[in-house]
Simulated assay, not measured.
Amino acid sequence: MTTAPTAPAPVSPPTTAWRDALTAVVALLLPVVCVGCGTPDRALCRGCHTLLRELPGRTRLVAGVRLDAAFEYEGTVRTLLLEWKLRGRSDVVGPLTARTGALVRAALAAAPGAVVVRVPPSRRGARRRGFDPVVSVLRRAGLRRTPALRRLPVHPTAADPADVVAARAGGGQKERTALERVAATVGSLSAAALADGLRGRDVVLVDDVVTTGVTMAEAVRAVRAVGGRPVRCVAVASVEV
């Protein structure tokens, strides 16, 4: 009786084989688990990579401008972003920055000659993290030097209603209601230093996470105030509202 030949075992491409070997060595020295599902030995396992590729993006309007978000801010995406922003885990966000960078490139293709402008992090967030996540996103898009809007202190005045005074006087955005966020954000961003480069030009605004949209709306207002034309907003993730 003739025995059917046994199919040879699949051979991993050299690059994958080297990467797997390196991962195994690192895991012996610095044991890690997947941020997404807890699988040992990888900061982000292949299964979670696949899951991220299959997740849909999100499109919404902010101040009348189209916002393209690479992901919905939930589940594994939320976990990865928190690990990145709170613990500096840049090793787990490659899929997030890659897709967001592609959205930036698509926005520029749709508006040739547009200027990319970063929405700056809050002063508190910048001090805590020591880096700007949007810079990493733009590097994935091939943009290494992009201007940012300027954050301005917004102080309560005697003419402000009591709720506006309370909103502007204390607490971070997470502790505020939606109305308090609006009150605390209006007038907090300026494009005055970029006026000469933005006046009469299309502008693509980029941020990391858009929640209520009030910060992005303030960025749109600031650009319009100096004669720029916001044509697209891009974010890593957006909260469904």
Rank of each mutant, 00 (worst) to 15 (best):
R128F: 10
S122Y: 03
R89H: 09
S90Q: 12
P147V: 05
R118M: 15
G113D: 13
L96Q: 09
L86F: 13
P120Q: 13
L108M: 14
P112S: 13
A141H: 06
S136D: 13
V93D: 02
L103E: 06
A107D: 05
P112C: 11
R145T: 01
D91Y: 10
V117P: 02
A107S: 14
R99S: 02
L103A: 08
R123I: 06
A107C: 10
L149N: 01
P133W: 05
L108C: 14
F131C: 09
A109Y: 10
A102P: 02
A109G: 12
V104A: 10
A106Q: 15
V93T: 10
A107N: 05
A106Y: 09
R124F: 08
L152Y: 12
G142P: 00
A148F: 01
E83A: 12
G101I: 03
A98S: 15
P112A: 10
T146I: 08
A102H: 12
R151G: 02
L82M: 14
V116D: 07
D132F: 07
A102R: 14
G94W: 07
V92Y: 03
R89Q: 06
L81V: 15
W84N: 01
V137F: 02
R127S: 14
A141T: 02
R123C: 07
V104K: 02
A126R: 15
L108G: 07
R150Y: 03
V135Q: 06
G142S: 02
A109H: 15
R87N: 15
G94D: 11
A141E: 01
L103V: 10
V115G: 08
S90V: 14
G142C: 04
V137G: 00
T146A: 06
A114R: 11
V116W: 03
G130L: 03
V116E: 09
R99E: 05
T100H: 10
R128T: 12
S122I: 02
V115W: 09
A141N: 03
L96P: 01
V135A: 12
A110I: 10
R151E: 08
A107V: 06
G130Q: 01
L143T: 00
G125A: 14
A126C: 10
P133Q: 11
V116Y: 05
A114M: 13
A107H: 05
R129Y: 08
R118Y: 11
R123E: 12
R87K: 10
G94K: 09
G88E: 05
L82P: 07
V134Q: 00
V137Q: 02
G101M: 06
V104L: 05
A110Q: 15
R99H: 06
G94Q: 09
A107G: 08
G130T: 01
V119F: 03
L96I: 11
T146S: 05
L81P: 08
G130C: 03
R139I: 00
G125W: 03
L103H: 08
D132P: 06
R128D: 11
A141P: 00
V137K: 01
R151P: 03
R87Y: 14
D132W: 07
G101A: 09
D132A: 04
V117K: 00
R144V: 10
